[in-house]
Measured scan of single mutants.
Amino acid sequence: MGKITFYEDRAFQGRSYECTTDCPNLQPYFSRCNSIRVESGCWMIYERPNYQGHQYFLRRGEYPDYQQWMGLSDSIRSCCLIPP
């Protein structure tokens, strides 16, 4: 099982949303994503809903700024857990 936490502000500040399963639409939970903490598993995150747009592969670790995962913007709208 994986676990990823999205934060609206840099350095793990602001409103957060924790996810443990695939989520095709993160828009209801936060308006922007400036930092991420991957506590377990590997995740693919996407800039648009329904697994569309630019995608980024994240391993376990801390990403205090969206540029840390080579993001082009602070828009993350869907995510899925990559099976081991």
Rank of each mutant, 00 (worst) to 15 (best):
F12G: 08
T5I: 08
Y51E: 15
D22S: 05
P49G: 14
R10V: 13
G14R: 04
R15M: 08
C19D: 02
E18M: 10
C19R: 09
N50Y: 05
Q13R: 11
E8S: 08
P83L: 15
P24G: 09
P49E: 06
F30W: 01
R48Q: 10
T5G: 01
C23F: 03
L26H: 03
P49D: 14
R10A: 14
S73F: 05
K3A: 12
D9F: 12
S75D: 06
Q13M: 08
E39A: 05
G14V: 02
P24I: 07
R48S: 12
D74N: 06
N50H: 14
M44V: 15
N25I: 13
D22F: 01
S16W: 09
Y7F: 14
C33F: 03
G14K: 05
I45V: 02
E18Q: 06
C23E: 13
E62V: 15
D65N: 15
G2L: 08
R15D: 07
R15A: 10
Q13E: 12
I4Y: 00
V38I: 13
G14Q: 02
F6V: 04
I82V: 03
N34S: 04
S16V: 09
Q68H: 02
G53P: 13
R48G: 15
F12S: 02
K3G: 09
E62G: 04
S16F: 10
Y51R: 15
T5N: 02
R15P: 14
C33Y: 05
Q52F: 08
I76C: 15
G61R: 01
M1K: 11
R48T: 11
L26V: 13
T5R: 10
E8R: 05
P49S: 13
A11L: 13
E62Q: 15
Q13D: 09
T21V: 06
S16H: 15
Q13C: 13
R37L: 00
N50E: 12
Y7D: 00
R48E: 14
S73P: 02
I4M: 06
C23Q: 09
R15W: 06
T21L: 09
S73Y: 06
D22A: 03
R48C: 07
L81F: 11
P24T: 10
E18D: 07
S16P: 08
D22M: 02
S16G: 06
S16R: 08
I4F: 01
Q13H: 14
F6S: 00
P49Y: 03
E18F: 05
D22V: 04
I45A: 15
S16C: 05
G2A: 06
E39D: 04
I76V: 06
F6G: 00
E18S: 07
C19G: 11
F12D: 01
T5Q: 05
S35H: 01
N25Y: 15
F12A: 02
C19K: 07
V38A: 02
I4E: 00
R48A: 12
D9I: 03
S75L: 14
T5M: 14
C23A: 11
C19I: 14
R15S: 14
E18W: 05
P24V: 11
Y7A: 01
P49V: 13
A11M: 12
M1V: 06
G53Q: 11
D22W: 01
P84S: 04
N50P: 04
N25W: 12
A11C: 14
L81S: 09
R15H: 14
D9E: 13
S35T: 02
E8W: 02
N50S: 09
S40P: 02
D22Y: 15
K3D: 08
Q27Y: 04
S16M: 09
T5Y: 05
D9Q: 13
M1A: 04
G71S: 03
S35E: 00
T20Q: 04
N25H: 08
S35M: 00
L58F: 15
G2H: 04
D22I: 03
T21H: 03
L81M: 10
R48F: 12
Q52L: 07
T20W: 12
F30L: 05
C23K: 07
I4K: 00
L26M: 11
G53K: 12
R15G: 14
R15N: 12
Y7L: 01
P49I: 15
Y46S: 01
M44I: 05
E8D: 13
P24M: 08
M1L: 10
D74G: 01
Q52K: 10
R15Y: 10
K3H: 04
E8G: 04
C23R: 08
K3E: 05
N25D: 10
D22K: 09
A11H: 05
T21K: 07
Y51C: 15
Q27N: 07
S35W: 00
S16Q: 07
N25K: 14
G71V: 01
K3F: 15
C23Y: 11
P24C: 02
Y51F: 10
M1P: 03
C80Y: 11
C23N: 04
D74E: 15
S16A: 12
G53N: 10
Y17P: 00
A11K: 14
A11N: 12
Y7G: 00
F30R: 15
Y29H: 13
Y17V: 11
S75Y: 09
A11Q: 15
G14H: 03
K3R: 11
Y46N: 14
Y17W: 07
Q27P: 12
Q27S: 12
Q13P: 01
K3N: 07
H54R: 01
V38D: 01
R77S: 14
N50V: 10
C19A: 11
T20P: 11
G2E: 09
L81W: 09
G14C: 00
E8F: 03
P49H: 13
F12V: 02
L26A: 10
S75N: 11
D22H: 03
K3Q: 05
T20A: 14
H54G: 01
R10Q: 13
S75C: 14
M1G: 04
M70V: 15
R15I: 05
Q52N: 14
P24D: 12
Q27T: 12
I4P: 00
C23T: 08
T20I: 02
M1N: 15
T20D: 08
P49A: 07
T20G: 09
E62L: 12
C19N: 03
I36T: 04
F12W: 04
T5C: 05
Y17I: 10
T21F: 14
Q13T: 08
Q13K: 15
D65Y: 05
S16L: 05
Y7H: 04
T21R: 08
S35I: 00
E18N: 04
R59S: 03
T20S: 11
G2T: 07
E39W: 02
E18K: 08
L81C: 09
Q27H: 03
S75M: 10
Y7W: 11
K3C: 12
S75V: 09
G2N: 12
I4C: 04
W69L: 15
Y46C: 02
R10L: 12
I4D: 00
Y51W: 05
R10C: 15
C23L: 08
G53Y: 10
K3M: 13
Y51G: 09
F6Y: 07
T21C: 06
F12Y: 04
L81H: 04
Y51V: 14
E18H: 04
T21S: 10
G41D: 01
Y7E: 00
G53F: 07
S16N: 12
S31P: 02
G2V: 10
L26E: 01
Y17K: 06
F30G: 04
I4H: 01
M44T: 03
Q13V: 07
W69C: 15
D9H: 15
F6I: 03
R15L: 12
M1S: 03
G53H: 08
R10Y: 15
P24S: 07
Y51I: 03
Y7C: 01
N50D: 14
I36F: 15
R10P: 14
T21G: 11
S16D: 03
R48K: 10
R10F: 03
G14Y: 02
Y7K: 01
T21M: 08
A11P: 04
R10N: 13
W69R: 15
Q13W: 02
Q52I: 14
Q52R: 04
N50W: 09
T5E: 06
D9N: 09
Y51N: 15
Q52S: 11
P49T: 13
K3Y: 07
C23H: 13
S75I: 13
G14I: 01
C19E: 07
Y63C: 05
Q27F: 15
E18Y: 08
N50A: 12
R48P: 13
R48I: 06
C19W: 09
I4R: 00
T21D: 06
D9C: 13
T5S: 08
A11T: 09
C19V: 12
G14S: 03
Y51L: 13
W43G: 10
D9A: 11
R10K: 12
L72F: 15
D22N: 01
M1T: 08
D22L: 04
K3V: 13
Y7R: 00
T20L: 11
L81E: 09
L26K: 01
T20H: 01
S35G: 03
P24K: 06
L81T: 10
Y17E: 11
T5A: 05
S35R: 01
P83T: 03
T5H: 05
S16K: 05
P24E: 05
D9V: 08
L26S: 08
F12I: 03
K3L: 09
